[in-house]
Nucleic acid binder design. Structure first.
Lengths: 304, 304
DNA sequence: AGTTACCAATAAGAATTTCTTATGTTGTTT
DNA sequence: AAACAACATAAGAAATTCTTATTGGTAACT
């Protein structure tokens, strides 16, 4: 490999531009011998003379002309790199890789949209995956930030709650319990529940809740999305437990109702998570703070 | 300006590629701490972290990914520059700027063509100009090599003869002297000569020759090209003095004849010239040697 | 848990590179 | 011939880039 230094190329570029060692030295705030030496070394490692002196003036040799071309090109690249990195420091630009758990799909896009609107030039990629995959990504550092309902225990995770995530029992409006008030919790044991697949956050939260209250719930069908559960509940196939945030539309259009069960809603939160010790990029840090400080309020506004 | 070194970028590129400081150190035949330091300095001058360590593995940050892109690009440029310069060293490639005096136009192209044929990848530019302009270019280092009939005295010129350049007297076949033998030189004083413009090499050689032999020649028309002189002589407007090389075609087709005058032909030579002290490029050097060693022979062959 | 292995960070000093000052050489100008 | 302008050269100072030796932290294996 050619043993040229960037310094040599910079000096060379200046000399070639001025066609003068002394002028170049001035421009670079160097002494003239320093320039001479750099050029000499450069010529040495290139193996060809780059300048020729005819009388008082100096000229570029053919080799010099070629190298001048490349020097300028490299200088351009560097300047561009500098500009890009400088922008990244100022949050003006950056990439943000976010993974959210399926359920968050009902509100995350709105938050992301708002954040992007405020901070132009940010390239954002949103990954909607289930809880298990997200935990995997977290372990392998394949994303900047994650949003999930309940951070896992084992791993070293930095998780902070930023918004409420009430789980409620939903039913078709025609369900016998639809109009009742203060339904006692044990009453649910008689009902069939349509649940998410094992590994889902909602599913495990639900199981833990029933276990805590010494209830055995009869699970009917398993569905892999909240959307499917809502459909099944609407069709009268049983009750469901979902995040309040996912059913705004169905409540409004009276396709579903929330049952008034004792001890409900289950009070949970949405967490923004990243692996402990991960150095967040400026953009990621900004988005995290945006979530912590404004997400709850923003979602309220949207709902109203 | 960013104070990055090429070394830093090289080291960074290796680390980014291997995602390991130790592997990069091996590849570069360095110790691991050396790599650590280079990266640290690079991060310092960039102002952003380039890697992040999660557990045992390291990953590129966004800034790192950007810089990686530019590092590779710069490395490519350098490799390309190296290849080009390496080729130039080996004569495989190069540029050659040659200026020839107008008269040389009759043979120079053939020589150049042969040289180019032998050495592919050489970019050649041939400049046909008159003697005065050529001397100017010589002084200003605006060309690699020149070909002229008589090198100027004043300047520091390195001139070497490489081929004969006999000047002969030409006439129309219908001219009274056309068939005479051993025409005495003074006889020419009665004839009218069609000559090149002042400043032309042929013109001054001619004037010097007549002055040496104490003859006053009567010049009729002045023409700025040898081609025009030949036309005029054919038309019977007088005699001409031109280089033998320029009239091969006309002799063959009997449009012109060479007069058998005493002391003729004027024995001159073609010279390859460059400013003294000029560092000839490898290509230029090669062409010069080609002229010195083969030109005469090649032109013989072509004529025959 | 304790041990081992691996990887990167840090510290100190050696080797190398890159500067500056001082001076020499060459070609141009007066 | 002398003065000037421009690059080359030499020697030593300053800065950098290495190496060796050591520390700290994480993961894997008894």
């Amino acid at each position: 490999m050619l043993h040229v230094t960037l310094r040599q190329l910079q000096v060379f570029e200046a000399v070639a531009r001025h066609l003068s060692f002394s002028r170049a030295a001035e421009e670079l705030h160097l002494t003239q011998p320093a320039v001479s030496m750099q050029i000499k070394q450069l010529e040495e490692s290139v193996g060809l003379p780059l300048f020729e002196q005819i009388g008082k003036k100096i000229f570029l040799t053919d080799a010099g002309k070629e190298l001048y071309h490349y020097s300028r090109s490299i200088a351009m690249q560097l300047a561009e790199a500098e500009a890009v990195l400088e922008e990244m420091k100022g949050l003006k630009r950056g990439k943000l890789n976010i993974s959210v758990v399926s359920t968050a799909n009902y509100f995350a896009p709105q938050l992301l949209a708002l954040f992007c609107q405020r901070n132009q030039n940010i390239t954002l990629s949103l990954n909607v995956i289930n809880r298990e995959v997200l935990i995997n990504q977290l372990a392998n550092n394949e994303m900047d930030l994650g949003v999930m309902g309940l951070p896992p225990d084992g791993l070293d995770i930095d998780a902070e709650p930023f918004m409420e995530n009430p789980l409620v029992v939903i039913a078709s409006p025609s369900h016998p319990l639809a109009l009742e008030k203060n339904i006692p919790l044990p009453r649910l044991a008689q009902e069939t529940f349509i649940v998410r697949e094992p590994g889902s956050g909602t599913r495990s939260a639900m199981e833990r809740f029933f276990a805590q209250h010494n209830l055995i719930l009869s699970t009917g069908m398993e569905m892999s999305t909240d959307e499917a559960i809502k459909q099944a509940v609407q069709a009268g196939m049983g009750l469901g437990i979902v995040s309040m945030l996912t059913i705004a539309l169905e409540l409004e259009t009276k396709r579903l109702v929330v049952l008034d069960v004792d001890s409900f809603p289950i009070r949970r939160h949405w967490y923004v998570v990243h692996r402990k010790g991960k150095r967040l990029s400026v953009v990621a840090q900004a988005f995290k703070e945006f979530l912590l400080q404004e997400a709850a309020q923003v979602m309220q506004t949207v709902k109203a």
